[in-house]
Write a protein that binds this DNA or RNA. Structure first.
Lengths: 150, 150
DNA sequence: CAGATCGGTTCGAAATCTGAACTCAGCGCA
DNA sequence: TGCGCTGAGTTCAGATTTCGAACCGATCTG
């Protein structure tokens, strides 16, 4: 054995991506944020295959990001809602949108603008709540949290 | 035609996810943020198939997120670096990590902590630069940017 | 020369994704 | 009574991707 086998990092990013690291998963979450929790609507608005959407909704529900609520009995109808964990994905969605607005919007500008408090366009910025400064790449250093017991 | 065909939204999130909406793509970007721009190292640290990593690095480079630099001639060796667009993905990475730290960390806590300015643990928070308030789900309303000319 | 490093490519098998069709239940309506 | 519609999926065959492992070519290292 040549010691070359530094296995993949234990990493919160990797873990998170196991759940939402797939286009349709995050687009499903986007739809729920936009107020569409119905299966058919989500399929239409995202363009995902129904099959895939159904599978994603299952994993998102299992992961505790969405909840399935019955809003009609008899014709049994369901609607997906965000859990607290799901709502906490908002920064992910917002930062993805923000990046796309900046780098992928055509000459026409971003297709959608978020109005914050019905007052002004949202200008998302990430800061460090501890010191108040904007978070910039290169100003944080990764530190292993705890010495592995092995 | 039954008017039921509201096609998928034109959406910055969707566009962004076309590029980085895949586990290995974002893990590759994570590695570069952590200072590893070498192919082999990225493969080892992420666990991605070499094949897939090579493909992702190509798309990320084509998308202008990474740049491929030759750091050694003769044994031709390359290294990937972040472009400005790539560095601007930092909030995405940080918010994914933050979410995972909160919801997927075991009893041992998050496996990695980011020290901000070598001084305190990073506490990422998203605010609206326009009004200074924290960005919360439900406080922004989507508004179509411009009336489609069609 | 034998290995190791580095940055990939190539391969076949396995998993996944896709689109289209199908299901089941009730509702509107003529 | 039958016809089509909506909603929420499921089922299926076929295309695409992914995976894992092996291979390649170049170059230093002993």
């Amino acid at each position: 054995m040549t010691a070359a086998a530094a296995q993949p990092r234990a990493c919160s990013i990797a873990r998170t991506l196991e759940i939402v690291g797939e286009k349709w998963a995050l687009l499903a979450v986007r739809e729920v944020f936009l107020g569409n929790g119905r299966f058919d609507e989500m399929v239409r608005r995202t363009g995902a295959p129904r099959d895939t959407m159904a599978a994603r909704l299952r994993t998102l529900t299992a992961a505790g990001i969405l909840e399935r609520h019955q809003y009609s009995r008899h014709p049994d109808r369901f609607e997906y809602q965000l859990t607290t964990a799901g709502r906490d994905l908002y920064p992910v969605i917002v930062s993805l949108r923000s990046w796309g607005d900046r780098y992928l919007a055509g000459p026409a500008g971003p297709p959608l603008v978020l109005r914050h408090h019905d007052d002004h366009p949202l200008e998302p910025q990430m800061i460090c709540a501890a010191c108040g400064e904007p978070v910039r790449a290169g100003e944080s250093r990764p530190v292993p949290a705890a010495a592995p017991a092995g």
